[in-house]
Design a protein around this nucleic acid. Structure first.
Lengths: 156, 156
DNA sequence: TTTAATTCCTACTTGGTCAATGGGATTAGA
DNA sequence: TCTAATCCCATTGACCAAGTAGGAATTAAA
C-alpha cells in the first residue's frame, strides 16, 4: 500500500500535468484535489528535492513540473516518496537490502517469486507517464479486459 | 512493502511445504528460518484462523498445511496477513474502499494505472503456488532475463 | 515603499501499528 | 504424573505516518 503522502504526491503531479506549461499554487492544488494545504506544502518540498518539480516564490509563485509530463513516470514518483516498489528489500533493484534472517539468498524460493512480481510492477509503473495517464490509455482497458476473464485473477 | 510478520508467514508456509505430509513444531520452523519463536506462534495462529494450516496440540503437536502445496498461492497468504495487493484501496478487488478525497472515481487517471499494476501483481501471486516456488520455476528466470534487457525496467 | 501573497523552515502533536516479549492455561502423549 | 507442545491474553517500546502551528524569507503588484 502507498502512504497517504504518496497518493497526494501522485495526485498533485497529475494535477500539474493538466496545466502543461503553467504553474499552480499549493493552495489551488490542495483545494482541487482535497488535500490538506499544510500537508501538501511538505510534500511539494519532497518533490522539489527529488527534482520532479520546480518552484517560484513570492506573489505569483507556485510549482511546475520540471520536465514535460511524457517524461515523468509513476514509478519515479512512488520511489521518491515511498521507496521501493518491491514487496521485500531483497527483491528490490534500487533499494536492495539483504534479509538478515535469510541463509542463502540465491536459493530462496520466496525471493524468486517476489522478484518476478517486482519486475511486473516496475514494467508498468516505469513505462506509464503522467501524459499517458491523462490520455486515458486504451491499453489499460485492454489489459483489464483480458485479465478479468481469468478466474485466477478475480481476487485482489 | 510486506510487513515482517508477512515475510515470516511466507517463509513458514514454504518451510511447511517442504515436508509434504508431515507436521512441524513452531520451535523447529523458528530455528530453521531464523524467526523469533514467540512471534511465530502468533503468526501461526493467524494462518490457522485463515484456514491455511491446521494444528495438533500437546506433545508431538505441531502445524501442517491444510491443503497440498500446489493449491496454496502466495497471493492468499499475503492477503490474509497484510491485506490488499493493490497500491491503493480504490484499486483493490478484495479490499476495495473508496478514496474519501476523490471526486469521481471513474475518471481518476491515477486509479486506472494502479488497477493495471494490481492486476499484474495478482496475476503472478495468485498463480504461483508453494509447490511451484519450491520447484524452482524456470519460467521465473525466463521472465527476469527478458526484462533485464529493457532499460525502462532497470530500476525498482 | 508598503502590502499581500506565496514558498520555505522548524517544531510539535497525536494516534496508530509493528515487532516482539512474558506468563500462564490447556492439551496430549510417554 | 511428567513433559512438551499449542493456545490465549496482556503489555511494552519504538517508530512513523498524518497532520498542525507559527512564523521567516521572498517576491510582485499597488
Amino acid at each position: 500500500m502507498l502512504s497517504q503522502r504518496c497518493k497526494y504526491a501522485l495526485k498533485a503531479m497529475v494535477d500539474l500535468a493538466r496545466v502543461p506549461g503553467g504553474s499552480r499554487r499549493v493552495s489551488d492544488i490542495a483545494e482541487q484535489e482535497n488535500i490538506p494545504r499544510k500537508f501538501l506544502e511538505a510534500i511539494m518540498t519532497d518533490l522539489k528535492k527529488g527534482l520532479l518539480v520546480s518552484s517560484a516564490r513570492g506573489k505569483l509563485g507556485g510549482y511546475r513540473l520540471s520536465r514535460p509530463p511524457d517524461l515523468i513516470t509513476f514509478g519515479e514518483i512512488i520511489r521518491l516518496i515511498d521507496g521501493p516498489l518491491a514487496l521485500l528489500p531483497c527483491a528490490s533493484r534500487n533499494f536492495y537490502r539483504r534479509c538478515e534472517d535469510c541463509e542463502d539468498e540465491t536459493t530462496c524460493a520466496l525471493r524468486r517469486v517476489l522478484i518476478d512480481a517486482r519486475n511486473e510492477v516496475a514494467a508498468i509503473l516505469d513505462r506509464r507517464t503522467l501524459a499517458a495517464a491523462l490520455a486515458g490509455s486504451s491499453q489499460s482497458q485492454f489489459a483489464t479486459a483480458i485479465l478479468a476473464d481469468d478466474p485466477a485473477v478475480s481476487a485482489g
